[in-house]
Design a protein around this nucleic acid. Sequence first.
DNA 1: TTTGTTGCAAAACGTTTGCAGCCTC
DNA 2: GAGGCTGCAAACGTTTTGCAACAAA
Lengths: 151, 151
Amino acid sequence: MKDEVSLESIQEIFTDYLKKHKHRKTPERYAILEHIYSYEGHFNADILHRMMQKDYRVSLATIYNTLEVLLACKLIIKHQLGTQVAQYEKAFGNNTHNHLICTNCGKVKEFTDKQLKNSIQGRKFAHFYSSHYSLYMYGLCHKCKAILKNA
Amino acid sequence: MKDEVSLESIQEIFTDYLKKHKHRKTPERYAILEHIYSYEGHFNADILHRMMQKDYRVSLATIYNTLEVLLACKLIIKHQLGTQVAQYEKAFGNNTHNHLICTNCGKVKEFTDKQLKNSIQGRKFAHFYSSHYSLYMYGLCHKCKAILKNA
DNA sequence: TTTGTTGCAAAACGTTTGCAGCCTC
DNA sequence: GAGGCTGCAAACGTTTTGCAACAAA
């Protein structure tokens, strides 16, 4: 259900957005979009930069710039998972996020739960129009639980 | 229900934690704890530092150090609400958090919902032991919704 | 007396910015 | 050709670190 969307249609959304906002269609921007959409899971600016260096040279500044644009047209989502470093992930067809975060080792795991999703998305607000959500559950992963028991 | 807990009992929890972990009971640590618990809402290290300077001199480094300790004994909670700056708040008796975040103006509002809380806290995991959660709902606040309609 | 903690200043880190040259439009 | 975009390097603001002096145990 998530991966039915082709890269072409994603690019089209991007093109439309750029046109509409009078931004230029540069090769760098499309290269960045492609790399993001061929990658599974969370990444940060630096990881993306290193990942791209293998086959396409872009500066970190351009990556940050493009991430802003992609954020604005909702093709990616930004997380701040308790660290200084912003995490991103592709967003199309996948804009609700449940995370388990270990408060000891920092490991992040995603999970899905349709029922929970319905409860959360079903919540309506008087003066707020919600588009998506992120849920962060903090606790201990199996490993850390075991380690800390012996401390 | 939140404010029944006295400062004394909070201090006791802190003392027990320090003792157990062989950390020293310094006046700076208790002064920081007190200031945090006499403050309502989110704060960051710098705000806390400025707030304290009026009646107690502590270095920023010590504040960061103490925030780590308070985090470890779960007397405060840390948020990264989309910015570079970590936000904190006192946690006792109040360790689940629902936020509405406007993706246009960045304003953050909290809300409570017992039913939602139950659904989320009721969720059990095979290999994860959750202690608390934060829910972030992204969308448009009333004002921004109105502004963007005319764009 | 020992050793963890403090304050200070410097360093580190991710991110942003200024600017000259380049490339879409 | 005009002006947005890029890459580079320098700047920024928050957080961390190294170290000497201090104080809790």
